[in-house]
Computed example of a mutant assay.
Amino acid sequence: MADMFILIKNDNQYSAPMDQMAMQTELRKYIDKESYPNLSQSLNDVADGKGKATQPYTYPDGTVNMPVLHASSGKIGADASISLFWYDKARGKDKDHYIIAMGEHTTNTTYKLVHYGQSTGQFKLGAKISI
């Protein structure tokens, strides 16, 4: 089985595992059409292991706080930019990518979770992430 994507819903429930195309279709529900190419590129970066550290942010997975990664595509400060936040869990040779939030890159070190996020915590919809 290949890498799978799982969307963490804002009530701390998990979607069924899906492939990259299905996750892209799911996340398109939260953005405008002009952001689709940047979403696609950000998901490619997730799948290709090109995530960057988002220290000191972590996300609880059971009793373990998982380090959060991020990937962005699009011009900084542009409305169509997309930044994804997630953590990975190994599953044999493959990984599961748990998508936590989606926003835009507002400065070189700041992101705003304007598209998708949790109902509470550091990755709450509307929150600012500074790294």
Results as ranks from 00 to 15, higher is better:
M1K: 09
M1S: 14
A2S: 13
A2T: 12
M4C: 07
M4S: 13
L7H: 02
I8Q: 10
K9M: 08
N10D: 15
N10Y: 13
D11M: 05
D11P: 06
N12W: 09
Q13P: 02
S15M: 12
M18V: 00
M18Y: 00
D19W: 01
Q20Y: 01
A22Q: 00
A22N: 00
M23A: 02
Q24R: 01
Q24D: 01
Q24C: 00
T25Y: 00
E26G: 02
L27I: 01
R28Y: 00
Y30N: 05
I31P: 05
I31E: 05
D32M: 11
K33F: 10
Y36I: 08
P37F: 14
N38D: 15
S40F: 01
Q41A: 15
S42G: 07
S42I: 03
L43I: 09
L43S: 11
N44T: 02
D45M: 15
V46H: 02
A47G: 12
D48P: 05
D48G: 10
D48R: 13
D48S: 13
G51N: 10
G51E: 06
G51C: 10
K52A: 10
K52S: 10
T54C: 15
T54R: 11
T54F: 13
Q55T: 12
Y57D: 05
Y57R: 05
Y59Q: 10
D61P: 01
G62M: 03
V64M: 12
V64C: 03
M66I: 11
M66C: 13
P67M: 06
P67Q: 05
L69F: 15
H70L: 13
A71Y: 06
A71K: 07
S72F: 07
S73A: 15
G74C: 04
K75H: 08
G77E: 04
D79L: 06
S81L: 04
S81T: 10
S83Q: 06
S83H: 02
S83R: 02
L84G: 12
L84Y: 10
F85D: 06
W86D: 08
Y87C: 11
Y87W: 11
Y87T: 08
D88W: 03
K89V: 12
K89R: 15
A90I: 04
R91W: 09
R91Q: 13
G92Y: 03
G92S: 03
K93C: 05
K93M: 12
K93F: 11
D94A: 08
K95F: 12
K95Y: 14
D96R: 07
D96S: 09
D96G: 04
H97V: 06
I99L: 15
I99S: 04
A101Y: 10
H105Y: 14
H105Q: 15
H105M: 12
T107L: 11
T107G: 09
N108D: 07
N108E: 03
N108R: 02
L113M: 05
V114Q: 04
H115Q: 08
H115S: 11
Y116R: 06
T120I: 13
K124R: 14
L125R: 04
L125C: 00
L125W: 01
L125Y: 04
L125P: 00
A127C: 05
K128E: 14
I129K: 05
I131C: 11
